[in-house]
Design a binder for these strands. Sequence first.
DNA 1: TAGGTGCGATCAATTGTGCTTATGATGGCG
DNA 2: CGCCATCATAAGCACAATTGATCGCACCTA
Lengths: 297, 297
Amino acid sequence: MLLAQLEAFSEVARLGNVSRAADTLSVTQPALTARLQGLERELGVDLFVRGARGMTLTDAGRALLPYAQRAIAQVLEGQKAVDDLRLGKVGQLFIAAAPAVSTYVLPALLKAFQTTHPNVRMGVRTGHTEEVLEMVLRREVDLGVGRPIQHQDAELIPVFDDELVLVVSRHHPFARRDRIRLQELADDRLILFDRASSYYELTSSLIRQAGVVPESVIEMDNVEAAKKMVIEGLGVALLPRMALLAELRTRLLRPVRVVGAPPVRRPIVAIRRTDAGTPMGPVADFLALLRRSRAAG
Amino acid sequence: MLLAQLEAFSEVARLGNVSRAADTLSVTQPALTARLQGLERELGVDLFVRGARGMTLTDAGRALLPYAQRAIAQVLEGQKAVDDLRLGKVGQLFIAAAPAVSTYVLPALLKAFQTTHPNVRMGVRTGHTEEVLEMVLRREVDLGVGRPIQHQDAELIPVFDDELVLVVSRHHPFARRDRIRLQELADDRLILFDRASSYYELTSSLIRQAGVVPESVIEMDNVEAAKKMVIEGLGVALLPRMALLAELRTRLLRPVRVVGAPPVRRPIVAIRRTDAGTPMGPVADFLALLRRSRAAG
DNA sequence: TAGGTGCGATCAATTGTGCTTATGATGGCG
DNA sequence: CGCCATCATAAGCACAATTGATCGCACCTA
């Protein structure tokens, strides 16, 4: 049985007239006649009584009509559902993100996303990149955001590069200088954050590489606390730029260029299950927003 | 969009495998692949992620699946509904019938019909043939049964011939004779029934035709009373055979052949709206039962 | 009652479209 | 490293749907 036959049947039943139904369906009248005959042949019953004044439903036709209409309605609704999804109008967007992303990048992005996609259900979960990957693989979220991490079933999509920035308080001597040498850090107190973060290892190796042994080191367990320490003048810190946007803008913290040390850049990637296919709808839209934002400046 | 595409989609989604779905749908695998590609092209989205281990639904596929399944289910249910109707399993059978039919023919027939068609809703309305016609034309009933009556929108289907039978009580002198002459009726009392019935006019004209003036006439307003009168020996009557079946069988009443007068036969017809088409399902089955019954024979 | 009108069915030719068989490409698994 | 399973592609074919023109019929109108 063909959907076209059901549409023909439904429309002819509605109009009681093959010729006019042919117009509204944009086919010729003989084509419609053939569809109806085909349907009647397949079902083994007459659906219409042919009169000189048009077509009238038989009992069988009356019995079939509601089913035909519902079937057609389901198809249309299905098309609409897919279309809405494709255009990102509806659907869901659950994201797993590394702490810095979750804290400093997502809020603004999701606020913007919410205004353009009011009917999309959103959610955020936070974890280190390994946990993000796990959540993606277990399909607990539609998208992960974190540092690159290889896995057979995961696909990585670069979204922006983050960067470690050396920051000092506004009263610190470095604040007045364009750039400093790495060795000068030896005279200062270095503030480290979150031993579990991937940045911890980076920072440490950078320092060690330069043969610098800082006078003293303070370890914090989160970025926010580390920033406070720096602002209070207790030391200097290498912090991800995406966590500093507000303080750099208000000049509460001052960035300092370090000569002789290459800028430490870390790609931030989106993580998708390979078998989820090309991102679509809300996920695709959010990915575009994420890349466009260039969140790290 | 083709129904076949939705079926392909649904089945592949269920099995996660084009080749196996091709088996269950009894087509070749390339045919299914083409259907899926056509559907994806038309919707503008990928419905599956192709892997070496089979097909996995995308978000769009997951969104579409329930609609596709419901559409297919509606089509199947529609087919079943038409089929049940065609086979007379379900539906309704509302009949309007002339009083004699309603009283003496329908009860036994409807009892038989009920056992073979337990899920058919049935109903009977009684009226003279003109009223039966009206009910048919107003679609208050599916079928009328009565004497022939012409109308542009009504189709008449002969079902059996009724016959006026001269009956007398078992003690009446005629009861011992094979046949009588019409003129002999002049010596007897004639019992007429129901002035509104079409039989009244028939009977009267038959008598007048023969130039017979019965000694006396008693008019009753229903057949049952007329029968009682005859049984009590108060006179003789010309009554429709279909109203006499029980009394003739028990020999409470005796039929008498009248020589010189042709048997008075009246066709009983079923009445259908022309625009209702060929009878189907319960109506067709009942019509067949009605003709087979030869109720007046 | 003769001609006009509207409607559905039919016909012949053409176009399309899906189906089948055979083959290719790719990834996983022993 | 070759084999197996899986899906995609290609070529040829057959059937079916579409089209435009025509027919037949019933009804309406003059």
